[in-house]
Simulated assay, not measured.
Amino acid sequence: MPGYRLEGSFIEACDCYTVCPCWVDDDPDEGHCTGLIAWVLDPGSEIDGVDVSGCTVVSVSTHVGNRRVTGTATVLFVDEEASKKQFKALRQAFAGRLSGPLAGLATVSGEVIAEEQARITITERRARWSVEVVRDGGSSAVRASGTPRVFEDATRPLVLQATALSPELGVPEEPAESAGVTAQAGEGLTVRVGELPGGFVQVTGRSGMRGRFGYAHPRRPAVRAGEKVAAGNGRG
């Protein structure tokens, strides 16, 4: 059975307000949600022996109503610098097709209707961040940017812990510096993904989240047929 060990950071942004209701398992603002999740993989990340350190993945999704009830449609982008082996491993992982804790991503991605490589640029300068996905041919599929959401008279941004999405997105519960997700004030979000219903969005001042993620699933050696029979015969 394939195993994996993935760690890194993610950025989430969508066209909902303040905090996307998906984080608390509620219906999206205005009855629909279009957004993205961008993952950046740390050194040491691997999937079934394939080193995916430094790779980036972006999923762009849409859904109407509560995502757990109505389902989600997703287009998955993998960094164009990824090799064929890395691309295959990453699309399996982030579409939620592997067993173990990564399987929870299937409830976030829903129906993955397309998987492709693209030029992905993720920048983080001090508190500000930006994400851009450019498809083959030069068309921009995604542009998003934002900063931590700090409320009036507060000195630190809003941090949410134990959210509805935390287990599926692999948000660690500890140590304290990695636990929880930090709410973001989206400066701008543009999505142009024609394969998705509602996949054309251009908004400002919406929501986002940033946090750490981690998934670990040990590789299990295949058991030969003869060994299975032997184990079965050994029962009392």
Rank of each mutant, 00 (worst) to 15 (best):
V203K: 07
S45K: 11
G199I: 01
L196H: 02
S166F: 02
R91M: 04
V181E: 06
K84Y: 01
T62L: 01
A89S: 15
D51M: 10
L41A: 06
W23C: 02
A154Y: 09
A73I: 07
R143S: 02
T72H: 00
L189P: 09
P101C: 10
E12V: 11
V50S: 04
E46Y: 10
V133K: 01
G3I: 07
V19L: 07
L36C: 04
I11E: 03
V69M: 03
E173A: 11
E227G: 03
P221R: 14
S166K: 00
T147I: 14
E7C: 02
R143M: 02
A114W: 06
G137F: 09
K85A: 13
Y17H: 12
E80D: 15
E81F: 03
E30D: 09
V75S: 06
G236S: 13
G180S: 12
A103L: 13
A231E: 10
E46I: 00
V229N: 07
V40G: 06
E195W: 02
A162N: 14
T123L: 00
L160W: 12
R125K: 06
G104N: 14
P101F: 01
G110E: 07
G100S: 08
E227S: 13
F200L: 10
R68S: 11
A89P: 10
G110S: 09
A183F: 00
P21M: 13
T70F: 00
P197R: 10
F10Q: 05
T163I: 04
G35C: 04
A93M: 09
G104L: 15
R97A: 15
Y215V: 05
G146D: 11
R224S: 14
G188D: 01
E7G: 08
S109D: 10
E115A: 08
R210I: 14
I47D: 09
V131R: 01
F200M: 05
V69N: 04
R91Q: 15
R119N: 07
I11M: 03
R192G: 00
V108H: 05
F77E: 14
R125L: 03
V142K: 00
T123Q: 06
L41E: 05
E12C: 01
P101Q: 10
V223T: 15
S178W: 12
P221M: 06
R128H: 02
I47Y: 02
L90E: 04
R91C: 09
G180C: 12
V50Q: 07
W129M: 03
S83C: 01
D27F: 03
E116I: 10
Y215M: 07
I47V: 15
D42P: 02
T204V: 11
L189F: 09
R192D: 11
G198A: 00
G205S: 12
L98E: 13
S145C: 08
Q117K: 14
R128I: 03
A82D: 10
K84R: 11
E81G: 11
E80C: 05
G234T: 13
T70S: 01
F94T: 05
V134Q: 07
R235T: 15
E7N: 08
K84M: 06
E30P: 04
D27C: 03
P197M: 03
E177C: 04
Y17A: 10
L189T: 12
A82K: 10
V181R: 03
D29N: 13
V58F: 04
G234M: 09
